[in-house]
Design a protein around this nucleic acid. Structure first.
Lengths: 340, 340
DNA sequence: ATGAAAGCGCTAACAT
DNA sequence: ATGTTAGCGCTTTCAT
């Protein structure tokens, strides 16, 4: 017995005493196969523990059952949650997941897009906030199924799923305004990201609706270098008229703000209120618990998969855009401001 | 021009005016090609932005450049960090990563192992603590490159990389003992996992070295259902002679213990000391900061990739076993116990 | 040094 | 309802 050699359709065909096309039909669940023969083939498959070869399948132009996921890097809570939503939905749809981590090297993104489009995957999920048009054009030109995850530009010709960034920031800012805060410091993410721009608009709009103008001195940009956020807080504090509340575009930054404040013995929320964005796990375990804007990361992942599957199964289908709702989660890091 | 169709070796061959075999030689950097021809082919490749098709390559029996990663589920800090180490090392070695999440369904594990060994990937990384021998035998029989990550049985015929689980638990327990604790509650992970068994031995050994016997009533098993850990704490508290310290086999459980204790207004560390295992990010941000055993997750991932690559490049190579060192990280969640 | 040709495992016409 | 056959893009003998 040569059982150490992996079984192919040919082996199954021989074992079942039929032709390879019949086996293929059974494997793909196609009609026009006599029930008894179907059964016989299935038994042979079972006996030989046959698993169809995905690359061979893809090679002849049909589905491989694999979809690609392109992300900057692994290891953040945010990515972990998005990935979880994607993975679970993919599992239910019976797809495997191939991971492409760009490590923030833009060149890789272009290269990957090509590789993926030629490669094993039937479609691509893109969780890279700064979507350079370069490789998107490649994908669109090849009519390769793909969806952008967590971007905010509905005018794109690519499908996308995002959240209500504008509304989320608007809600958070309004909440602070209602608590009588008039000087609200803002720490933004990369301004090139469409979602940052939307959130910034939301912040400004809330201010405007309260008859307030925004103060450029109160808008600072985070650069994701860990100790940096603390400096921004110090810059705020050094102002003649420092903010009484700080709103950040991600929870990690908010948590760092709180930590910086704690080290400076400035009380949260009594002296300064803090609001974050995302609602990561640590937001609930922090002291005080962080008030933040809930970002439906997990659901976003699932929605993206749904759209992608539609594109894969239905190649001509037009781009779709889904926007999931954010939600203000009021906890302990904010309180009413009274000018004493 | 038909540039919307992706370039194949045939296109390159035509463009360079040579045969496909020559192109193949250039692509694979084989000898016996005249320098000028090599250059001409390279230019053609460049011009057509040719990317070799991996599945076609793999189909004829050579490397696919893909390795599989099998994990239970995504979304935990632990997995995120292991994956990060693996991903980065793989990136440097120029491999793609295909992810298999078993969702704790044993059947999926067997199925994946088969699928992978069938030819999708060149090798498999297994981060599934409960290693059922069933599919391992399949892999070994097929002589398929694979390495077990974070397991603890060096007697296996499969390569593995793990940590000093015994020593880690021994150190943590000894530390508590040195702080005069005599009743140390233990919350273990699944006892089927080899690493849990090693840690348990470490715990018992430390006790024994202090002339203490272990009390079965103080050893409880976590079941990973969020509210459950709290019950275990209550069970401890209900004892006639409750523990003065609690040691858990993962930080998530330790954090939940602390939360439960906080809700019950039992002070940590004054009333009860707590020690975790893993040293996840939240351990440092918790209040009080969690004392825990550092688990070199990231390095473990990298080490696993190193071994796997060796197996792939060198098919006959014998199994290797690496054990990385843990380290007790003393922070704020423990203090000296004096029977008042 | 280079090319022709035979597959790898599979699907999709095209027979029958 | 079932079988035959022609590729998919590539590597690898085997010729030349």
């Amino acid at each position: 017995m040569k059982s150490n050699h992996k079984a192919t359709i040919v082996d199954v065909a021989k074992a079942a005493g039929v032709s390879i096309s019949t086996v293929s039909r059974v494997v793909n669940d196609y009609p026009h196969v006599r029930p008894e023969i179907r059964l016989r083939v299935q038994e042979a498959m079972e006996a030989l523990s046959f698993v169809p070869n995905r690359q061979a399948r893809r090679l002849v132009g049909s589905r491989s059952g694999v979809v690609g996921l392109m992300v900057h890097a692994l290891g953040t809570e945010y990515i972990a949650q998005v990935t979880r939503g994607i993975d679970e939905a993919l599992y239910e749809a019976d797809y495997d997941l191939i991971l492409y981590t760009t490590h923030r090297v833009p060149d890789r993104e272009v290269h990957y897009a090509q590789a993926v489009a030629q490669g094993l995957a039937d479609g691509l999920l893109i969780v890279v906030p700064s979507v350079g048009d370069a490789y998107l054009d490649t994908l669109r030109a090849a009519n390769f199924p793909h969806v952008l995850v967590d971007v905010d530009n509905g005018n794109e010709k690519s499908s996308s799923v995002g959240i209500t960034n504008y509304q989320g920031a608007y809600d958070a800012t309004s909440y602070l305004l209602k608590l009588n805060h008039r000087r609200i410091g803002l720490i933004t993410d990369q301004p090139e990201w469409s979602l940052s721009r939307s959130r910034l608009s939301g912040y400004k709009a809330a201010l405007a609706d309260h008859g307030l103008d925004y103060d450029p001195a109160l808008i600072q940009q985070d650069n994701f270098m860990s100790p940096y956020t603390g400096r921004l807080v110090e810059a705020f504090l050094a102002l003649d008229d420092p903010p009484t509340a700080i709103f950040t575009f991600n929870d990690t930054a908010a948590l760092q703000v709180m930590e910086t404040l704690r080290l400076k013995r400035i009380r949260v929320p009594q002296d300064i209120s803090v609001v974050g964005f995302d609602d990561i796990a640590q937001a609930k375990t922090a002291t005080p618990e962080l008030t933040t804007v809930y970002h439906p990361v997990y659901e976003m992942g699932r929605a993206a998969v749904e759209i992608l599957c539609e594109h894969i199964e239905n190649p001509g289908s037009p781009p779709r855009h889904i926007q999931l709702e954010t939600q203000l989660r009021i906890r302990e890091s904010c309180c009413y401001w009274s000018d004493a």
